[in-house]
Design a protein around this nucleic acid. Structure first.
Lengths: 211, 211
DNA sequence: GATTGTGAATAGATTCACAGCT
DNA sequence: AGCTGTGAATCTATTCACAATC
């Protein structure tokens, strides 16, 4: 099992998909499967499943297939999902609100390993109000909250104009990975890993096929 | 200018990024730029910008650079953003609600080319209530609404358990492209183009780097 | 002198095809 | 007989390096 440090983002994302598939099989009481069954049931590529899985060990039994539960556990381990991840959300607008509710209220049925521990927004009208059980704080509290809770994940969901400033605050506060929803190109910083998600870009990709 | 039918998703997504950058320069009153300036200002690759742009024509002036406004207009044209795209949202939960508000209320400042024309949800408590000025309808109204409005884009934001059923309804109603937020593998259908976005997968990708 | 546009080179991702187990 | 694991082949994407142009 090679050092997992080198698994590509493409493969990581597919591992997450396989995880969902395996959980579904497990719930249905299925204990064994194969790359071909997974491919058929979930519209995946059997070869790709095997290639992906062998990057962190040999898990299958030739001639037979894979054991659902051990494989599921191993993927969770590889992805770092063995523990709960604490996150802060910066920005209490539409997207920030939806994410807090989605992650904290659905957490039971979700089998999600993420929990929001604090929400930040600098709008005076929002500070002090409740959001899914959390009091919205001004971003001046960010560093102290990260210190106190040990949250390593940050979700940046502010307007484009405020993104860079809040990004720098998050990095300074010790956040180590950021999911960015602001439509802004953030500078690289070796202290933090950033994944940017731009909903309008997704729609624009689809729009291309509607001409 | 080769048939645009063959531009890859990677390139399309970068074109969207370039578009945002050019709009920002335009707002700042800058009329000319170069691949190197764009790269420096927005942390992009100058070579890649040039390669991407030449896929649909020669736009630069050697030794000089690019004219901001014409290039912006050409990218909008290539992406099919010359007109407003009408979309329906299926699912009035956290994510559906956030998207409706985000797209319809921000549409002025957003320079977004997308407008939600209807929201569907089958929860009796939600049917008939208002969301950002739209009355939530039962999904039995979907086909008629698509017919009446000509909406070609659909946003699927329902729980996993309801995703496949609603997906099939959307395809049957004549929706031609779907942005899917449900954590479910949808079957391929030649009638529709699907882009799936799974927020937990993004977080799981980041979690991998926190072990 | 500066910058584009691009063929060639490199790097990365996916698929093929089959040897190796059970 | 059936399925995994994997080197080789293919396909795709990115980067290099420089001729062409202003």
């Amino acid at each position: 099992m090679p050092l997992a440090e080198e698994i590509s983002a493409h493969t990581l994302n597919r591992l997450s998909v396989y995880l969902r598939c395996l959980r579904q099989l497990e719930e249905a009481g299925i204990q064994q499967t194969s790359s071909q069954e997974l491919a058929r049931l979930f519209h995946l590529s059997a070869t790709q499943i095997r290639k992906d899985l062998t990057q962190f060990g040999e898990f299958g039994i030739r001639g037979v297939g894979y054991e659902v539960t051990p494989l599921k556990l191993r993927i969770e381990e590889v992805l770092g999902l063995g523990r709960e991840h604490l996150a802060v959300v910066v920005g209490g607008g539409n997207i920030g609100t939806a994410l807090v509710r989605f992650l904290n209220l659905n957490s039971s049925n979700n089998s999600s390993n993420f929990r929001i521990v604090a929400v930040f927004d600098n709008a005076p009208a929002k500070i002090g109000t409740l959001l899914a059980g959390l009091t919205i704080l001004p971003s001046s509290e960010l560093a102290a909250t990260v210190q106190a809770t040990g949250a390593a994940l940050g979700i940046l969901a502010v307007p484009a104009s405020a993104a860079q400033e809040n990004y720098e605050q998050m990095v300074a506060a010790g956040i180590r990975a950021i999911l960015n929803f602001a439509p802004v190109r953030l500078p690289n910083d070796p202290r933090v890993r950033v994944k940017s998600v731009d909903l309008l870009i997704f729609l624009e990709e689809l729009a291309f096929f509607l001409r």
